[in-house]
């Protein structure tokens, strides 16, 4: 396995980073840009997940000494500690309040509740700004518990970028992946097909029944994608060999919710290095953030329209011949 942390990775340009990864079995070798490294939290979660997987398999991690001036960031986010690596850095730690949530491993509901109670307030944002963050983290982490069978649980971290007033969030697991999970009920032809099904409202990996089961409606990822879409933010989901990226909805175009994810403004591919598990990254811009309630109105309208369409499709007219 080989990973190179380049100069800059954010969701907009993550494709190149992903394509250059070597996820084949064996030792994990991590190298990095020599001058400056700036990566999206989802990348940190991926590095941590692979590292934990390697540790679990009792294999070696070869982490090339970082020389970049931004190397302290990786120390502060807890990467070296979690992977039991010597960081060789002496750092005077300041509080993380308002800026980042270090990498966390969440394995059960109790840990998730603690995370929501203790970590999210560290971001020091007004309650109405924090709600979507709580929402996204809770739903994504619960997906890991319920569908991923990840040996290490969910790896989560977040970073606030004051210049763009954006929170970037990553939630990663090394479980069975979306295709295997959703194949219990559906028949996806490929990893991309599986991702597409998982993002479609009303499709859950637990039943084919309309309305889902008592516990799953197949709406969680659709809600999160909708939040990113209406917010005109990035959202990425990567599992197996496939990557789906919701691109920023152009400002001059009305953001309308649609069921079929491949009809959204997106980029996708099926030729990525195989990721055993699921990777989700999202950006939430806090200042252009429409009211969360307004997004819920749009989602409700969407369900109404879908229902009307279904009724229309079922409606039979008499045929006079």
């Amino acid at each position: 396995m080989k990973l190179h942390l380049p100069n800059s990775v954010w969701i907009g340009n993550i494709d190149t980073f992903l394509k250059k990864m070597d996820t084949s079995n064996g030792e994990l070798e991590i190298s990095s840009h020599k001058d400056w490294i700036s990566v999206h939290p989802v990348v940190l979660c991926m590095v941590t997940s692979l590292g934990l997987k390697i540790r679990h398999e009792n294999k070696k991690i070869l982490f090339q000494k970082m020389t970049a001036t931004s190397k302290h960031y990786f120390h502060r986010m807890g990467l070296f500690k979690l992977l039991k690596l010597k960081s060789e850095m002496e750092i005077k730690e300041h509080g993380s309040a308002g800026r980042f949530i270090p990498i966390q491993i969440i394995k059960n509901s109790k840990e998730l509740d603690n995370f929501i109670t203790e970590m999210i307030p560290l971001l020091h944002k007004e309650p109405d700004k924090v709600e979507p963050i709580k929402y996204v983290v809770t739903e994504l982490v619960r997906n890991v518990f319920e569908h991923a069978q990840s040996k290490i649980g969910a790896v989560v971290c977040a970073q606030y970028y004051p210049k763009s007033n954006t929170i970037r969030i990553g939630v990663v697991d090394i479980g069975i992946g979306i295709k295997k999970s959703i194949s219990k009920v559906w028949n996806p032809k490929s990893d991309l097909d599986a991702i597409s099904l998982a993002l479609t409202p009303g499709i859950t990996g637990t039943t084919r029944k309309v309305g889902g089961t008592g516990e799953n409606a197949g709406a969680g990822l659709f809600f999160i994608k909708s939040l990113a879409k209406i917010n005109r933010d990035f959202f990425i989901i990567y599992s197996g060999n496939a990557m789906y990226k919701l691109l920023k909805n152009p400002k001059n175009k009305e953001a309308k919710l649609i069921a079929e994810p491949l009809q959204d403004h997106n980029s996708h591919g099926e030729d990525y290095p195989y990721w055993q598990g699921t990777v989700v990254g999202i950006d939430l811009c806090l200042d252009q953030h429409p009211n969360f309630d307004k997004i819920l109105d749009l989602i409700r309208d969407f369900y109404r329209r879908t229902k009307k369409q279904k009724i229309k499709e079922r409606f039979k007219r008499p045929r006079f011949i």
């Binding site: 309650p127 709600e131 709580k134 929402y135 809770t138 739903e139 619960r142 309305g211 889902g212 089961t213 008592g214 516990e215 799953n216 409606a217 709406a219 969680g220 809600f223 969360f292």
Partner: peptide, 18 residues
């Protein structure tokens, strides 16, 4: 209660409605 996820509300009432 300030907010609730869709998953929470679904788990709370969907089966009752069904």
């Amino acid at each position: 209660v300030n907010s609730a996820t869709q998953s929470f509300v679904h788990a709370l009432i969907s089966d009752v409605i069904r």
